Amino acid sequence: MAVTAHYIDSQWKLQKRVLSFLHLPPPHTATEIVDTFYKALCEWGVEDKVFTISIDNASNNDRAMKPLKDSFRVKKKLFFGGRLFHVRCCAHILNLMVKDGIKSVENIINKIRDTVSFVNASEARLVRFSEVVQQLQLPTKKLVMDCPTRWNSTYPMLTVALRLREAFFSYNEREVAYVACPTEEE
């Protein structure tokens, strides 16, 4: 578990600090999460200065918020009646939304990945593909591979693939082993 603090200093500048990297052994129960988190707050002496907590949307994290919020309520350290105490991590929400959207074009993305892997698998294929790109006078020559676990790397791969789409069709006509060519519609 990583515990970070964001606060406004006396000069009204936003400050960010990593307070702790904590080992949280399984099982990651709500009780273990609360105890580990609260211990970190106490070590830094900020247990009475928490305004809001932003965590990802894991179910155990959600369950941990109730006892933590109750603890702050009992100590009368809950600002705005706790309405802003638990804020869901926007990056995690965005990540879930993008991954869901990617599912609708997953087969196309897989074809592009397969194409990049196929072309880059041998020097001869790479040379032949480069020749096709050169003959078509396309602006980009090098294919880009994404990292499947990092959706933000998929965009550059697809952007380059769109620029090279004509090359895929021509390359498909010359390379019989190339079977991952996207269709015109894809």
Rank of each mutant, 00 (worst) to 15 (best):
A2E: 09
V3P: 11
A5V: 08
I8V: 13
W12D: 12
K13S: 02
K13H: 12
L24Q: 02
P25I: 01
P27Q: 05
P27W: 02
H28D: 04
T29Y: 01
T31I: 10
E32S: 15
Y38H: 10
Y38C: 06
L41K: 07
C42V: 15
E43W: 07
E43L: 09
W44R: 09
V46N: 10
V46D: 09
E47C: 04
K49H: 08
F51I: 12
N57E: 08
N60Q: 12
K66E: 13
P67Y: 01
L68C: 01
S71M: 14
S71L: 13
K77D: 07
F80E: 02
F80S: 03
R88Q: 09
A91D: 07
L94M: 11
V98D: 04
K99A: 06
G101E: 10
I102E: 05
K103D: 10
V105E: 03
I108H: 11
K111N: 07
D114V: 02
T115P: 11
T115K: 06
V119P: 02
A124G: 13
R125Y: 06
L126C: 15
F129G: 12
V132N: 12
V133Y: 08
Q134V: 13
Q134N: 15
Q135R: 14
Q137T: 09
K141M: 14
K142M: 06
L143P: 09
V144Y: 12
T149N: 02
W151A: 01
T154P: 07
Y155M: 11
Y155S: 12
L158Q: 09
L158S: 09
V160P: 03
R165Q: 15
R165F: 12
E166R: 15
F168H: 06
F169C: 11
S170A: 14
N172S: 08
R174I: 08
E175Y: 00
V176Y: 07
Y178K: 02
P182T: 01
P182M: 01
